[in-house]
Simulated assay, not measured.
Amino acid sequence: MKLNAVISSIAWVPLGLVLAAPLAHAANPGGDVYVGGGLSLNRAAGLAGKVDSTLASQGIASSTSGDHTSTNPNLQLGYRISPNLAVEATYDRVGKMDLQSNISAPTADTASGSWKGHGLGLHVLGIAPLDDKWSLYGRLGVERWHTSLDLASNAGGSTSYAASDSHTSLALGAGTAYAVTRNIDATAELVHYNHVGDAAATGRTGLNEFNLGLRYHFM
């Protein structure tokens, strides 16, 4: 991913926290409401092959290569119901993954484009405190993803494809949190989404996210 895209992703995090903090505090000023944000490294396994399968269903024979990872921001708004249970609303983004395709049919051509997506989720966290600083947690939830695939000829040929789709995915993850202060946690987490995208429209792939972030608790 290009440096300016990474910088742009980082810039979204403080903006989201600033916007979410007043809403969280107003919702429950006396409870353990928290907001969080960070960066995620996303890996879409076998994305190029999934794109080839989608193009084949549209009558386009292709051999595609390109990115399968990207670095992006994520945001959370959560409420810790008890020491062992929390619920979260999340925003996740998979930035543009660049693709290049060699087209053999219906006419020989080369094309380039991108695959990208963003999602809104609702998750339940089961928490196991280890001591007054460290805790482990598991995540189970659903995420509504919107994905898009766009390809166009590199040389003014006839190849042109653009499609988008919205789809719901299961989310399963595990992570650890460290209490930096009474109000601030640092987190590291791995989350798997079982399928993101549509096989007939944009290409369906499993997505793994490794997240590093901070959470602020309004206690």
Rank of each mutant, 00 (worst) to 15 (best):
120 L>Q: 00
133 K>C: 10
83 P>R: 06
126 G>K: 09
63 S>M: 07
44 A>Q: 04
208 N>G: 04
84 N>T: 05
121 G>W: 02
65 S>P: 04
185 D>N: 08
120 L>Y: 02
181 T>C: 01
113 G>Q: 05
130 L>D: 09
108 A>G: 12
113 G>F: 03
131 D>A: 14
136 L>W: 02
211 N>C: 13
211 N>T: 11
174 A>C: 10
144 R>L: 09
44 A>I: 13
118 H>V: 05
38 G>H: 12
44 A>L: 10
28 N>I: 09
207 L>A: 12
35 V>C: 03
176 T>E: 07
95 G>M: 15
46 G>S: 15
109 D>K: 00
63 S>R: 13
28 N>L: 14
82 S>Y: 02
110 T>I: 00
16 G>E: 00
98 D>A: 15
182 R>K: 13
56 A>W: 04
40 S>G: 14
125 L>N: 05
144 R>K: 06
61 A>F: 04
125 L>T: 03
60 I>K: 13
30 G>A: 14
45 A>N: 11
106 P>V: 09
18 V>M: 08
149 L>I: 04
26 A>F: 07
47 L>F: 03
94 V>I: 12
67 D>R: 07
51 V>I: 06
195 H>V: 13
44 A>C: 12
187 T>L: 05
135 S>L: 12
32 D>H: 10
116 K>F: 14
181 T>I: 10
85 L>H: 05
34 Y>A: 09
194 N>T: 12
123 H>T: 01
138 G>L: 04
132 D>M: 15
6 V>Q: 13
183 N>W: 07
172 L>E: 06
92 D>E: 09
65 S>H: 03
172 L>W: 00
199 A>P: 08
49 G>T: 05
79 Y>V: 15
187 T>G: 01
152 A>C: 03
24 A>S: 02
14 P>V: 15
166 S>K: 08
199 A>M: 01
79 Y>C: 11
26 A>V: 06
199 A>F: 02
68 H>V: 08
169 S>G: 01
166 S>T: 14
157 G>E: 00
72 N>M: 12
48 A>T: 08
54 T>P: 00
8 S>W: 09
42 N>A: 11
115 W>T: 12
210 F>P: 02
134 W>Q: 04
122 L>A: 08
64 T>A: 06
74 N>Q: 09
40 S>V: 15
137 Y>L: 08
184 I>K: 03
132 D>S: 15
159 T>P: 03
201 A>Y: 01
192 H>K: 07
165 D>K: 11
31 G>T: 07
26 A>Y: 11
186 A>E: 11
184 I>S: 12
194 N>S: 11
9 S>N: 14
95 G>S: 14
156 G>D: 00
34 Y>W: 07
43 R>E: 12
61 A>C: 03
113 G>K: 07
77 L>C: 09
71 T>W: 05
120 L>I: 09
57 S>Q: 15
90 T>K: 14
16 G>D: 10
6 V>R: 10
43 R>F: 05
197 G>N: 07
166 S>Q: 15
181 T>V: 03
189 E>A: 09
53 S>K: 03
25 H>G: 01
143 E>V: 10
183 N>D: 02
34 Y>E: 05
23 L>Y: 05
215 R>C: 11
20 A>W: 01
141 G>P: 12
76 Q>R: 08
124 V>D: 05
174 A>D: 02
82 S>F: 10
148 S>I: 06
192 H>L: 02
